[in-house]
Design a protein around this nucleic acid. Sequence first.
RNA 1: GCGCCCGUAGCUCAGCUGGAUAGAGCGUGAGCCUCCGGAGCUCAAGGUCACAGGUUCGAAUCCUGUCGGGCGCACCA
Length: 642
Amino acid sequence: MLGPLKRQIAASLAREIHDRFGVDHDPVVEIPPRRSLGDLALPAPLHLARVLKRRPREIAEELAAAWRPPGELVAELRVEGAGYLNLFLDRSRFAAALLDAPLLPGAQEESAGEAGKIVVEHTNINPNKAAHIGHLRNAILGDLLVRCLRALGRRVEVQNYIDDTGVQVADVVVGFCDLEPTSLADVKALPEPFDYTCWDLYARVGRWYEEDPARLELRRKTLHQLERGEGERAEMGRLVAQRIVARHLRTMARLGIGYDLLTHESHILALHFFAVAYEQLVARGALRLESEGKNAGCWVMPLEGTEEFAGLEDPDKVIVRSDGTITYVGKDIAYQLWKFGLLGKDFGYRYWMDQGVWVTDVEGAEDHPSFGGAREVVNVIDARQSYLQKIVRAGLAALGHDEAARRSVHFAYEMVSLSPATARQLGVASEDGKAQEMSGRKGIGVKADDLIDRLEEKAREEIAARNRELPRAELAELAREIAIAAVRFFMAKTGTTRVIAFDLDEALDFEGDSGPYLQYALVRSRAIERKVAAAGKGGTLDPRAAGALPRELWDDDLWDLVHAAAQIADTVDKAAATLELSLVARHALELAQRFNALYHHHPVLHEEDAGKRHVRRVAFAVFARALGALADLLGIPAPARM
RNA sequence: GCGCCCGUAGCUCAGCUGGAUAGAGCGUGAGCCUCCGGAGCUCAAGGUCACAGGUUCGAAUCCUGUCGGGCGCACCA
């Protein structure tokens, strides 16, 4: 809502500046720090001062005298501070427009397809153990991005990559085949939670290797069978991966996170995706067979000489190992090519009925949606893999796909470690007050389902403490909604470049900047409107009537709330463009804080003056729309009561 | 050695492409429920924005360097 207005104003001022001073200047439109200074600020005179060699204030005065801002929403223009041109909006008209105007472009965007499809890959948990809170950060950020892009009108396909032929699965297979021999049928019959069972087994296998490194031979043997897809170990691998993936999907579904397609590494191998990429890479001279040195017998991608890879100790990256197997990067280059529709090969697809999701297969169904063929690809992967993602891009570029390389985005975020206190609670010795890194291999970490369970339990306690008596099913549902809000907001509120030292007590806190705080503000505002309606003082808010309300009725704090609500499209746009998704969470928090700070002073039900009541209802309605929209993006449910 | 990220209140973090008086939450101290829901609100205390230079009318923000801390630079992913 504010966005188009800002653009319109900037364009108009640019024309005025051009006509008056003969200078091309693209004016910035800012939000002043205090509303008393104005609703929009144009620092153009400050920027022009240098070029024109005049005082900013003087330029501002001249422009203010001559320029007339466009549209009906600007009520006043003033010169402020060092030379700002500040605009004041018509509060009633502006607020009235926000009662029914689309807050985000998504719904109205008819031409969504024209910008092309974006493939977003996230979650990507190795299917050999339970998901932990590190994986949660990935999935929550990925899902938030997907929701933002869709709200902005983009067409998005969500993929979750399943590495079902990697070392991690191999280790659990070794656990079931060698360390603690268990038949296929018995593994199939193991009770849930199967992912918890494997979590422990995986850690035991790690220790078992350490006792006798010769046992690593079993891993190699298993890995080979997994890659070939034949033999008892491959069968075991398929079973483990399938059962674990089912658990991961369930965990994510608890949080409202879903996928369009599960891509399996085993199918990339079985369909020889890499062979196609390999031929192209060799033909282009991007791969070289080493005959001597430490990489003898390997096909490597030379990275020397490129600016991006300057200063590397080893300027070559192994793509095909000397035993003929393919490294992760090699497979990923082929996969990335497929995502862009540049491989010239496709998967088979099968609908996994039990989970309600499409999965790749070797042959698959006749009828299936079209997957891949994206214009842009976003891979949500933690920052530690930046180097590998750079190599994938370099691979695309080496094949001449510069455009695709440019449109390959690595959405990097920092990892989640454990706070000293939480590490201690898990029985892990933290080193002199420093955060403790999680380790699937060592079985150190907070499992995602454990966290959600704890949050639901805490929510039930909080509800009980408020003496709310609810039927059992409603209680469970409400606790679930509160838990989702807590965990999703917790992961979304921190900037992506920051390592999260996960602290359980902090995550379990429902006060302050938390998901439940947002929910509560939303619930309260809706309760007010409900009670007003029940008292017969409600009725549909008419934008025309609201637009004609006298200016004096708008107290500054009410107006601030509306002003902040009007910025959500700009915030979401910026969040998606910069991949700093915490902006969405922060904005939701800001709105909730503003509302909480003022609603005491602005009663609706008990207000005698009809005009005041009307203005407050308008402001609160705009607020509820905006916070509701942000909560949707954040995946935070809005309970009717709590 | 090279690369990326971080350093802002006791703690956890915001601070948008340089701009107006550096802000929240937690914690601490003091208050606020005859009044639409207290998962809330108000007030107070708390800051050499790691350090040093530089650019600029103006720097927490941009540049260079230094010092701390984290993470990468595998025939693991």
